[in-house]
Design a protein around this nucleic acid. Sequence first.
DNA 1: AAAAGTGTAAAATAAATACTTAACGATGTT
DNA 2: AACATCGTTAAGTATTTATTTTACACTTTT
Lengths: 190, 190
Amino acid sequence: MSVQLKKDEVALESIEHAKQIVIDAIAETMDLYGVTPSAGRLYGTMYIEGEMTLDQMKDRLGMTKPSMSTAVKKLRSNGMVQKTWEKGSRREHFVAESNFFKSFISFYCKKWEREVEMNVTAVEDAGKELEKIINNDQVSRGIREYAGNLHVQIYESKSYYDWLRRLIDLIESGEIFTYLPIEDTEKRKK
Amino acid sequence: MSVQLKKDEVALESIEHAKQIVIDAIAETMDLYGVTPSAGRLYGTMYIEGEMTLDQMKDRLGMTKPSMSTAVKKLRSNGMVQKTWEKGSRREHFVAESNFFKSFISFYCKKWEREVEMNVTAVEDAGKELEKIINNDQVSRGIREYAGNLHVQIYESKSYYDWLRRLIDLIESGEIFTYLPIEDTEKRKK
DNA sequence: AAAAGTGTAAAATAAATACTTAACGATGTT
DNA sequence: AACATCGTTAAGTATTTATTTTACACTTTT
């Protein structure tokens, strides 16, 4: 084996190692996004390797096709992976959303939306029930006061949910980037 | 039984029901915060019921003390529950952080901090490894180009992590509230 | 139309996680 | 000092979640 080929072989191994460092870090922080470690690893792999089919995924990660299928489904539901068209191929191809800003916006806005929706509904439902008691003069004074205090308490949380809803708007609309602009790290260095 | 007592009894039941609506909603959205459903239920209960001891928790939720202990540990690590001093009592008392803004700040900043830290480190480590190859003229041109492209790709993610770090600062410092003020829902209604 | 390729659903198995029981160590009380 | 009280750790059990195996429905190719 020539010296040249030997050097190249070492270099390729080193590149694979470098890739793996990044993939592992992405996978490890993906628990925040409520996906399994495998799905995190898959996302990291797709991010680094680019477009992949289910069969390529299963070979790369040493898992089965159905599990790749479910992992992709999950990642797609989070907006982290998209299906792509590849002409001349029957297979479906998938690509990781490489714009982390989009992933961030998609993921958190969806989650926060759900949080606001569920809790505001609950607060309002519970509030109505308490108001009936508060306004019922056939109920003892002490109990009505208790209901009143509870009513105040749960409505305090609404100011948080209102704020969260406005945060969602700020991020979804992209207005956040006027207050907090995206800086180009590469350019800044020069 | 008097009519009065009967009405009161119904009212108390209704209050418990109203509480449970709020507790359930909080518990259900707590999966976002990476806690188990039980821990979510516990937090919701503490938020509504106020200060509690481990024994009160276990009675309220019908679980064992060790599991309450681990749930509290988890909630405390997220900054969602705090220990309180109660003079004249040997038992430890715990109270849910009732300020959701504080919980939000504490939780997300901690998580995002970890995400940034881990990934930036990985990008820099992998970057160094790739640079060695890029600058090694004993390696074939094609491979060096490949390493170069990879280097560019992984460094692109850094602008996201830089942005996220600035978002953390904006939130931790409270500066976010100048752009997105907290509105008092109660007052606004009047 | 038969055969092969492709993705997913359903059932079965494996692995991880949550919870309980039992036991311990630390601190306070008698 | 012996006994209680309280929180937690450790080991065992149960439950949930992830993964694989098997089977099938739908396409495309032959």
